[in-house]
Amino acid sequence: MIKVKNLVKNYGGKTPAVNDVTFSIGKGEIVGLLGPNGAGKTTIMKMITGYLNPSQGEVLVDGINTLDDPISVKSKIGYLPERSPLYNDMTVYEYLSFVADVRGLVGNEKYQKITDMIVLVNLEKVVARKIKELSNGYKKRVGLASAMIHDPEILILDEPTAGLDPNQIIMFRKILRRLSEQKTIILSTHVLSEIEAICEKVIIINSGKIVADNTLQELMENHSKEKFLDFIVEAEKLADVEKVVCNIDGAWNVEFEKKETKNQFRFKALLSSSEEFKTKLSEAVNGKGWKLVYAEEKKPNLEEIFLKLTANTQEIEHVQ
């Protein structure tokens, strides 16, 4: 359904925002595009929708190159940008009617689709209200309704749950699950639980490059041999412990998790060399006169795999 070949997007900086990205997505697949901020997820999505042109490479949607026939490609895609930009001076109904018009819907079909979308995303209460008066959650729903009004084969959703409250997120996931039965969906998000809950396949992007392109099951299996160490250190000051344990060799990444008691601090280390890390941790803790209260090796979950794959990013975003 979607083929991305050697895609490059250069905004004029030292390194391209998207660097030689290749992947394909089959019909009916739900794919999560995952990566830290600035990894290139949104740029890839914008190139698939035809909003941006690639500097190199090509995007084929149903065999059609986005540069050769952008209108055909755009008519197959429904797109919800991250900020869900809408015409605030219009009412919800007027906006959906406008989108239906530009999507070429006419007559009864147009009114039926508008009604279907209003029901699907629960917009009945606000249908006559101006968009500028709506909450973020309702704006996202209007954006989703407008992206789906023409019943597209492909849905591209850029951080669809960003800025929503927990109730709205649950509702949004229900809608996406319902849609996932009929459509090819590309979803970018920071929320790993969302990927686990909805997506069949995950593409992890880091610094403009693909670092993983697997089904969730494959990804977990591929990283099943890798481990992380969950450990608690008893010491006087957290800052001192952090300074020491974060610089021990043998781990991709060491993160402070939480304070167990006043003097007990829990850490998580993604291990690159298990034995080396454990030995050096033990030496460091004993050498400082602290106490290693607890330590256990575990298999990584999606969050830890994500952290490992994107570990070279200077600033790792907080992942929910």
Binding site: K46, T49, G50, Y51, I71, S72, K74, S75, I77, Y79, P81, P85, L86, Y87, V99, V102, R103, G104, S146
Partner: peptide
């Protein structure tokens, strides 16, 4: 809104 406008067919 230009992003929406230019992703319409």
């Amino acid at each position: 809104t230009i992003e929406m406008l230019f992703t319409y067919p």
